[in-house]
Simulated scan of single mutants.
Amino acid sequence: MSNESACEWCGGKAAAGSGMVYWELPDGTRAIEIKNAPAIICSECGMIYQTDMVTKEIEDQLFIVDTKKINSSIEYKELMELPRLLKRNYFDFSS
């Protein structure tokens, strides 16, 4: 099974990978760098982006952890393993 897909930007060949992203905390106090976040990387247009699912995972996690304990830079895996203050994001009414 291939991990190639079509780029959402240009329709070219894209593959799963990882990249660095910058994210504003939900309270708007600062932005953090998230290293090695799952990403889609297009070999044709060069775009590197996160899927909607990864975006939602990051946003949900930032709502339910103590963001004061996050330095200016964190690994994606480390972010997702932080202790949660809530079981889930009760502020998400999209589903």
Rank of each mutant, 00 (worst) to 15 (best):
E4W: 04
N89R: 12
A31I: 08
G11I: 12
N89L: 13
E59F: 02
N89E: 15
I48C: 03
T55D: 09
M1P: 07
G46S: 14
N36I: 12
C42E: 02
R88T: 12
M53H: 14
I70H: 00
L79T: 00
E8V: 09
S18N: 13
Q50D: 03
E4Y: 07
A39C: 15
G17H: 04
G17Q: 08
I58N: 02
D60G: 08
L82Y: 02
A16S: 13
L86C: 12
D27C: 05
A14K: 00
I74K: 00
E57S: 10
M47R: 07
F93I: 13
G28Y: 08
Q61N: 11
S72W: 03
I58H: 01
A16P: 04
A31M: 14
P83H: 14
Q50P: 01
I58G: 02
Q50C: 07
S5E: 08
P26R: 03
E59A: 06
A6G: 07
T55E: 06
N89D: 15
M20N: 07
V65N: 04
S95C: 10
A37P: 02
C42T: 05
L62K: 01
A39M: 09
E8I: 10
L82C: 07
M53F: 14
D52Q: 15
M1E: 15
M1I: 15
M1L: 15
K87V: 11
L25R: 01
N71T: 04
R30F: 04
K13D: 12
D27N: 09
A15S: 13
A6F: 03
N3Y: 11
S95D: 09
K13C: 11
E75P: 01
Y49L: 13
M53D: 15
L85V: 15
E57M: 12
I58P: 01
I48Q: 01
E59R: 05
